[in-house]
Design a binder for these strands. Structure first.
Length: 557
RNA sequence: AGGCCCAUGGUGUAAUUGGUAACACAGCUGAUUUUGGUUCAGUCGUUCAAGGUUCAAGUCCUUGUGGGCCUGCCA
């Protein structure tokens, strides 16, 4: 396949050219996470890119863990990362790999470099090495150990592996050019001594290859054709290629960099996300306010919406900040079509329908979806006392307010028209209850005289309902750029104190039997997803995203 | 500042590779609507700057400006 169905981007152009020139007959991509943290929306972009390319070009997609730093990595992350990929639908099939599986081969290649005079064992301390490295504007100086003999290097390196030296005592370095303007080429470290337990290789090794010495060669071993990474690895490409040139690798992959995803009101730094979790600003990695895959999954995002989002943000080399509104748009677009509609009152205000008897119980039918009959319907119960949402009533409404007010008539969705006849308040002047009269002719939602009511509001019987807990979320950060702080302040100052609001709400009776494997829309309020904190006693819902709300926007002015 | 990279509406991404700048999101207006949702119609607004090459430049060249990355024994 020379033409992929997806819109072009510079990477697809490179692939097309490689396929056309015969440089490759098929492509192989990979997603190479380090198992030292949870995946976030930025990783989703990379996953969708790499997996999508392999799928569209009918190539292969590998999942490879870049597990070269035992101090920071663990199987907990290996598992959560796989779960996230599965949820996203990024299927790696049989192609699950670990860089640690290549340790023996890498060790062999390191010796090859030594034999060729391209690597040496260096005894400089970390501080000394920093001094010798030079700066951005000044060249570095060669290590005094640079000219050790091949035999001595070989011997030392083998003894490093044998565990004869302490952590940090020696390193193996490539012999390239201490005067190179690219600091990565100033005799970079290939191996360091770390007496630490590795989550896969156990205590088999006490020397570990660095990222630079591992990544490209792992790509080569697996036959990766296009090694796609983010822009900050650009400066590493010359080194990536240097290893490929100096080692007898089975293939010569090509590194291509693209700009990572940034999003308004959102942080995508593993370190800072970890801080939010550890300092308790959120409940955990899967807190629905987190941009982690596990967080947005719990929030109620669908894999489809994430794929759509990734397709829409595109792939390029310039720094970007995506509007969070685009992510929300993708979710709404997906959910609008698939959600079951239910009525839930989040902020209850009691309304007594005075011309309905105490024991009245009228059941009305409402479709599960306004535009898709195949999704069926459910019944809602109308009684003398009902709840409506507090913001659907105004005692002194402005002209454009279409909802309930003294003397005003509205439609109770699916049921009938009511007119507000009385407002009851407590001593403090707070509205505690409303009295209203229903038009008996309006049962079913319209009247024979065909008169129009401008407003239709949702409601729930005060007697026949399902009490639920609703968790309403707002942006975790107030500012578009969470890092936008005065002086040397911290992004923590931009945390939104109201990012979570927990409310006791009332849902319509059918909520009890609803199949929550399908997404749900609480009519006029938003899309909600059942939270795992739910049990048979208490249903808990997360607001995934609110509905677009052109009224509050207008009213806010 | 040494090197590398980037620059198209408010935000992203395109532009048959030198030939009329477009799509989406956001915003705004209106219509429809038993969700102030959805849908539909419309609207706003763009090539960082200056030179150069050319019949023709968003695209090529030069310089400038602005931004990003790089001085871990992290990835």
């Amino acid at each position: 396949m020379s033409e992929a169905s997806k819109p072009k981007n510079f990477i697809r152009e490179i692939i097309d050219a490689d396929l056309e020139s015969g440089r490759h007959t098929t492509i192989v991509t990979r997603f190479p996470p380090e198992p030292n943290g949870y995946l976030h929306i930025g990783h989703a972009k990379s996953i969708c890119l790499n997996h999508g390319l392999a799928r569209d070009y009918k190539g292969r997609f590998h999942l490879r863990f870049d597990d070269t730093n035992p101090a920071k990595e663990s199987t907990e992350y290996v598992e959560s990362i796989q779960a996230d990929l599965r949820w996203l639908g990024a299927d790696w099939g049989e192609n699950l790999f670990f860089a640690s599986n290549y340790f023996e081969q890498l060790f062999e290649w390191a010796q090859h470099l030594i034999r060729e005079g391209h690597a040496f064992v260096c005894d400089l301390s970390a501080e000394q090495m920093r001094e010798y490295r030079g700066t951005l504007t000044e060249p570095g100086r060669p290590s005094p150990y640079r000219e050790r003999s091949v035999d001595e290097n070989l011997d030392l390196f083998r003894r490093m592996r044998a565990g004869e030296f302490a952590t940090g005592a020696k390193v193996l370095r490539a012999k390239i050019d201490m005067g190179h303007p690219n600091l990565n080429m100033r005799d970079p470290i290939l191996y360091r001594i770390t007496h630490a337990h590795h989550h896969r290789t156990g205590d088999q090794w006490c020397i570990y290859p660095t990222y630079d010495f591992t990544h490209g060669q792992s790509d080569a071993i697996e036959g990766i054709t296009h090694s796609i990474c983010t822009l900050e690895f650009e400066d590493h490409r010359p080194l990536y290629n240097w290893f490929l040139e100096h080692l007898p690798t089975p293939s010569k992959p090509r590194q291509i960099e693209f700009a990572r995803l940034n999003m308004t009101h959102t942080l995508t730094s593993k370190r800072k996300l970890l801080q939010l979790v550890e300092e308790g600003h959120v409940s955990g990695w899967d807190d629905p306010r987190m941009p982690t895959i596990s967080g947005i999954r719990r929030r109620g995002y669908t894999p489809e919406s994430i794929h759509e989002f990734c397709d829409r943000v595109g792939v390029a080399r310039r720094n970007n900040t995506i509007d969070l509104a685009l992510l929300e748009f993708c979710l709404r677009q997906d959910l609008e079509e698939r959600s079951l509609r239910r009525m839930v009152v989040l902020d209850p205000l009691k309304v007594v329908i005075t011309n309905l008897p105490e024991d009245a119980e009228e059941w009305y039918e409402g479709p599960n979806h306004p535009a898709n009959e195949a999704m069926g319907s459910r019944k809602v119960a109308l009684t003398r006392e009902i709840y409506i949402d507090r913001d659907d009533f105004m005692e002194d409404p402005p002209r454009k307010f279409f909802r309930l007010g003294p003397g005003r008539e509205v439609r109770l969705r699916y049921a009938c028209y009511i007119t507000c006849t009385e407002v009851i308040k407590d001593e403090a002047g707070n509205i505690t209850e409303l009295r209203a009269e229903m038009d008996p002719e309006s049962r079913g939602g319209s009247t024979p005289d065909g008169r129009k009511v401008k407003g239709t509001i949702h409601w729930v019987s005060a007697q026949i309902n399902v009490p639920i807990e609703a968790r309403l979320y707002e942006n975790l950060f107030l500012k578009e750029d969470p890092e936008d702080v005065e002086g040397d302040g911290s992004y923590l100052e931009n945390l939104n104190p109201d990012s979570l609001q927990v409310v006791a709400a009332f849902g319509e009776p059918s909520l009890r039997e609803t199949d929550f494997s399908l997404p749900v829309q609480f009519e006029r309020k938003g899309y909600f997803a059942l939270d795992p904190d739910s049990d048979s006693e208490q249903l808990v819902f997360n607001r995934s995203v609110s509905l677009k709300d052109s009224w509050s926007k207008k009213a806010g002015k």
